[in-house]
Design a protein around this nucleic acid. Structure first.
Lengths: 100, 100
DNA sequence: ATTGTATTTCGATAAAACACGAAATACAAC
DNA sequence: GTTGTATTTCGTGTTTTATCGAAATACAAT
């Protein structure tokens, strides 16, 4: 598994981004219903609402998470859905155990 | 175990600080001998040398690590010795598994 | 093709982090 | 107490991060 430990830690060194990642763990309980099933991920608009920051700011946070490989996105129509990348997250935790 | 997850992650979001923490895992192999046994920790001077940054900069890094609880320090004479705080590190790894 | 909705990118600003050298502090030894 | 060594704190410049609103892009629907 290739992954940039430094980039991932920096991505996680922000409470909003960690929060988003946590919300995505259980979309059913954290977000109200959406037209598409949660298997595709959560529509970014729902995340914008929840975060209490401007759209552009949250969009930037999502981009950082994605660049670090912690989430992936799918475009469906005019919406973009984000979901956790569990493989990277697990690999990061393992790498962290070794690094520390 | 009380510990500020946010403060710890921010402390770790810097390669130099992670490096220092890694060096302290095996002082015998990472640092040449010192007058006091490594049980007391590693003399900050040795860490300054190894890091390749100015004393003041490395001193600041050590302060961040200590404030986060990742290392502890002991003063002996005019020297200050730093060592890992394994309890905090382990608690952090566990908290990280839960948070992610 | 015009309009409307969803999202991202751009440009600006403020705050935080990183680095340095110089000054200050702490302690030992003389 | 003066000198020398070890370390931290202070003042400063530079870079990175976080945030916003406005402009740009993408797509759907009419």
């Amino acid at each position: 598994m290739q992954m940039d430990l430094d980039e991932i830690i920096k991505a996680l060194a922000n409470p909003t981004r960690r929060e988003i990642l946590a919300w995505l763990k259980t979309p059913e309980t954290e977000f109200c219903e959406q037209s598409f099933p949660f298997e595709n991920g959560v529509c970014s608009g729902k995340i914008f609402e929840r975060a209490g920051l401007s759209q552009s700011t949250v969009s930037a946070h999502l981009a950082v998470l994605q660049k670090a490989g912690l989430v992936s996105s799918t475009k469906i129509g005019q919406w973009v859905f984000y979901k956790r990348d569990e493989a990277t997250i697990a690999a990061f935790l393992a790498a962290m155990r070794d690094a520390l």
